[in-house]
Design a protein around this nucleic acid. Sequence first.
DNA 1: TTCGCCCATTCTTTCGAAAATCTGCGCTTT
DNA 2: AAAGCGCAGATTTTCGAAAGAATGGGCGAA
Lengths: 244, 244
Amino acid sequence: MASENLTERQPDQTLGQLAYDSIRSDILKGHFAPGSPLRLQALKERYGFSFSPLREALNRLQSEQLVVSYAARGFRVTEISLEEMWDAIDTRILIDCEAFRRSIRRGDDDWEGRVMGAFHALSRAFERNLELGAEVTEDQVHQLEDRHRAFHHALVSESGSNWMKVFSTQLYNQTQRYRWPYFSTRGGNVFLKKSYLAEHREIAERAVARDEEAAVALMAKGFRRTGEIIESLLKGEDETDRGT
Amino acid sequence: MASENLTERQPDQTLGQLAYDSIRSDILKGHFAPGSPLRLQALKERYGFSFSPLREALNRLQSEQLVVSYAARGFRVTEISLEEMWDAIDTRILIDCEAFRRSIRRGDDDWEGRVMGAFHALSRAFERNLELGAEVTEDQVHQLEDRHRAFHHALVSESGSNWMKVFSTQLYNQTQRYRWPYFSTRGGNVFLKKSYLAEHREIAERAVARDEEAAVALMAKGFRRTGEIIESLLKGEDETDRGT
DNA sequence: TTCGCCCATTCTTTCGAAAATCTGCGCTTT
DNA sequence: AAAGCGCAGATTTTCGAAAGAATGGGCGAA
């Protein structure tokens, strides 16, 4: 059964886990649009798993609010809305800023190194995307997203709180769905992207300088600003986009 | 298939949902002890569902950190530890106090009514348990737990944040696992229980008086105190328990 | 004796199909 | 024409069994 997958499977990796990773990734990448139904037959054809591991994955995603289920009527990708976005951002400010604060207090040299390393990788990915402009491939956008995730993860990684880590990850995933128009080619412009990178540099610098208040304030400000930019983009008010 | 359950099933209630509710409840009630394995065959015999809905339930519980899964070696109830408890309590202070603060600001008369109503029901359940002393039945302990949950839910119910509600519920469930020795007959004593009720009364009164700072401070203090009491109970330092 | 290997057993994971449920269309009735 | 009914097709949910992994005990080699 499913023996053809044996070689591809990592040890300790079940099909259910694989399905979970795949579907989540596809939702975050926007392959499955918010609100769209996730039909089992379609998922089976896309991934090659049978219903059981797919349903397990969908149930996990349901608990993480990436998917909603309707009894006997299947699953859908959770809708997005400005209201939802601001709720996620506000809650993320609450969680991530506290976890960041604790990391600044508790983190050792190794943590500083991870933060600066993650920032370096992020800035490289940023530069590459900037240089390429509209020529950027989808893979490169996703790599930038991964670097961005790794950077934010590093910032809060020494909070010492497992629960904050869990919630932080969940909220990151949620807000990533909204960042899509921002990171995509169409969305951002050079000026915005450069200031975005500068913000992140400042955060990293304040963090390793152990300037708790400034670092946390910058993080909160960054989250809010991102929200405002996305709000203007989603509303079709692309005035800020002229510099492109 | 499973036609014998038709009458018992609520509309829009699948077996998977039922299994989820049942297993979660049994974990929270302590029927499945922390760290104990959740074998599918045993669950099947206990609830009468086949593997599929049971696995769906376990996968959801895994996302909520009530269960951990080990690839190809099944599921276990998440372990408890003092460290984990304090993490949950600290994070709960962060989330619930913020949600409480917002509810105090935003809540209308109806909210005040729900808070006072929930407190009233809580105090009645408390009194009943106090009167019965060691004679209290398990069901009554569970009813007290339900009232307690309803009260705390009411306090934060007008935060306007869906994410805080989700996290608050999750953390409530987690901390409930630790409150078990506290609410159980053996654990608490009359003096402790009375002061516990008095704390909750104060919180409710400060809430409806819209005394934001006092109310939030009391809530945080209550969470911490509960943690300390449980810590002393778990460590076997039952000195505080003499008044019984 | 001790270590490592193999096999039987137990348990999890996955599959394919049956049962239950939902959806939409066309029919009838008012 | 509008509302109600019922059936056919599509979809989800559930089951039972097969396949795949882990566990533990017994056997043989060092």
